[in-house]
Design a binder for these strands. Sequence first.
DNA 1: CCGCACATGTAAGACGTTACATGATTGT
DNA 2: ACAATCATGTAACGTCTTACATGTGCGG
Lengths: 175, 175
Amino acid sequence: MARRALNATAASLLGFLHDGPMTGWDLVAAAEGRIGDFWSLTQSQVYRELAAMADDGLITAGERGRRDRRPYTLTPPGRAAFAEWLHQDPGQELIRFPLLLVVMFGRHLPAGRLAQILAGHRELHADRLAGYEATLAERRGDGLDPYAEATLTFGVMYERTVLAWFDALPPQIRV
Amino acid sequence: MARRALNATAASLLGFLHDGPMTGWDLVAAAEGRIGDFWSLTQSQVYRELAAMADDGLITAGERGRRDRRPYTLTPPGRAAFAEWLHQDPGQELIRFPLLLVVMFGRHLPAGRLAQILAGHRELHADRLAGYEATLAERRGDGLDPYAEATLTFGVMYERTVLAWFDALPPQIRV
DNA sequence: CCGCACATGTAAGACGTTACATGATTGT
DNA sequence: ACAATCATGTAACGTCTTACATGTGCGG
């Protein structure tokens, strides 16, 4: 029951639980779909945080349903903890971009290899951009609230920038 | 001496050591200055990785100098391990952007508070952009190799995009 | 001679990843 | 009957953060 400060991952789960009781499985899917593009988490973490939060009284585990589904419900203390977390100034973003490390040390790579790596990643980002744009086109109109739309827009703008960066690389690096 | 696979942090240290022996302190400064914008690490990690790599024979610790400075030197196996790491396809970038979480759950915040948070972060990013641009202007010309310049350019483009995103947010969110 | 920056390191705990174990239900 | 997917959970390990402990040498 001793309350430790919420981490962002746990807080996000509480955020989703504002829409009603959900199981760990559902939360994993929700997180992946709705915040996965800028906040990674794993199934393992979700079950751990849920157990910890149930322990702290922020949520309560319901009866197991079919297939052992166990819904968690937000409690008033959970609501309060979420509100407190949300009010804090969010920290800076953390970016860990291995490709940029490789670029930085690119002079240690034989000619062509860096270009090859860059080409592969460019394609990957092009695919992600296409995915975001499709989602945006599809969901704008029906149930996409402006907050979710803002985060999606960030994804679109980010991926476009990454592509523009690839395309603006000097020939020395691109070849 | 048992060789485990290099992680990106350790590999980066080896990368820096290609330019000559350096101490942990120097490496922390080098990492912060040269890759810190897209690969975070702490002093604590650096000393740990150095100890582990010395153990594995990838680097050798030199004599302690004044103020206990202890230079580490790259060994041939270290060079090989670095080359091997660099050849792999780098993984995807990891972005953890707490501000976007707050935006996503923005409907749970009272009017004005989100705008306030956004304004603070916008300023922060404007400062970072100014810093990158100053560095680029200052160092372009003298000893800035195209690889380092490419990573800096990424920083500039990224920050500009973030600013553009702030400025394109719909009024419902910005107020 | 005193304060600050330099410099190395340890400890403890939080967080994250990967792999595995187990079983239920659905659809074919 | 069988495979695929749903669903929960544990174990082990790796990584990251924060704080602390300890001492050195430079500059005023």
